[in-house]
Nucleic acid binder design. Structure first.
Lengths: 221, 221
DNA sequence: GTCTATATCAGGATAGAC
DNA sequence: GTCTATCCTGATATAGAC
């Protein structure tokens, strides 16, 4: 049965765009459902309803539930981290290193404490035994988009004598643990607990100061 | 049909002990099943098989699947952390603080990186939206059995002038993040990745040194 | 208290029309 | 490519015998 518009003229949707739009609609609905229910409890029926699409359409596009899960979660991961790129490169050039580090790690922390990202992270961690690829992907994306550029910046600062860092890779892990890691650990186990901005800033600032107490070059003190 | 022993004499099991043993058998089997499959995918049928018990027995004991899950996971959590208690009290009295801190955090880390505990942690994190009680319980047990005694010890060391720690609670969080947190973050997303003992020791040692660089009393340098 | 057997239902996946 | 209608497995939970 064709749809007719208000003049009685049949509406023929553009086939390609419709297909593409349905595909995106499925991905959006699936992400929401998986985040809410987890993998096993998520139902393809619910996803079909949310996406206003029939079940066979989902199976034509993605094959089965596992592939749908991998495609959806694997697709959203890189997008999640894409926001942070620009900041890293500025560290090596900053006139005030302490302020630059605080700014960087504070932005990073606020991103990773967002409810949607915490949910995504909990989902990936919870399904790690069934979908280890997602754990590796998360680690790789997180490392390449964040740690690695920071390692480069810190290595550069070491060469210039601003910092004294024998193991830059470990040092960056420690900086991340000292800043992002502290509130993340709390919110991972207690997502409902609110952390106000002042406390977050205090935590991050203190973390950066611990980092600098160890790694700032003695000659600059 | 009664069981007969080798002399043809019927074996009448002690009713109370049998019931208790079945209950423990269910708990053990349920824990294994939940750790393997997660909450939603775990089947009460499988648990009954593993425990060599019929399904109605499980429902008589625990009511439903949710209550079974909460009883099992909530019961195993405190046991998990019970091993660490003795070490904390020794920090304040140690002659060599650095060595004592390394020893404490290294033991702590090795415990929390055990496969069964990592699985338990991933399970709790993955089900956090459906069972927030478990997240709170984990946080509370972990804090009371580990962080709190360490906060006391560090406060004591601050009073004695050995350390200079304006905020002991935050400082302990940072110490934990710097030591346990670094390898835990890796193993949480990549459980299969092996971390050898030498590298672990190096990581923990470096973490303690970062901590002490910031908080060791200046007068003692 | 514990079992066998069963009720009841929802979920993943697909056949076949259009 | 997309839908309606359906298959079939496997899940939670329980009735009733012993």
């Amino acid at each position: 049965m064709d749809l007719l518009n208000e003049f009685g003229i049949p509406v023929i949707p553009d086939a390609v765009n419709t297909t593409q739009r349905k595909r995106e609609s499925i991905i959006e609905a699936a992400l929401a459902e998986f985040l809410r229910e987890g993998y096993a409890a998520a139902s393809v029926d619910s996803i079909a309803s949310r996406a206003k699409v029939s079940k066979p359409t989902i199976y034509k596009h993605f094959g089965n539930k596992e592939r749908l899960f991998l495609a959806v979660i694997g697709g959203v991961l890189p997008k999640t981290y894409a926001d942070l790129e620009p900041y890293n490169s500025m560290i090596a050039e900053a006139s005030d290193l302490r302020t630059a580090l605080i700014r960087l790690t504070l932005d990073w922390t606020k991103l990773l404490l967002r409810d949607d990202i915490l949910s995504l992270r909990s989902l990936v961690i919870g399904e790690i035994d069934r979908f280890p690829q997602l754990g590796h992907l998360w680690y790789r994306v997180s490392y390449e988009m964040n740690n690695a550029p920071l390692v480069n910046a810190i290595t550069e600062l070491h060469k210039r004598g601003v910092l004294d860092v024998p193991d830059p890779v470990l040092a960056v892990q420690q900086l991340v643990a000292l800043t992002v890691g502290v509130p993340q650990l709390v919110k991972t186990l207690q997502p409902d607990l609110e952390i106000d901005d002042a406390e977050l800033t205090r935590t991050i600032t203190s973390g950066v100061d611990v980092f600098l107490a160890r790694y700032r070059s003695a000659s600059r003190l």
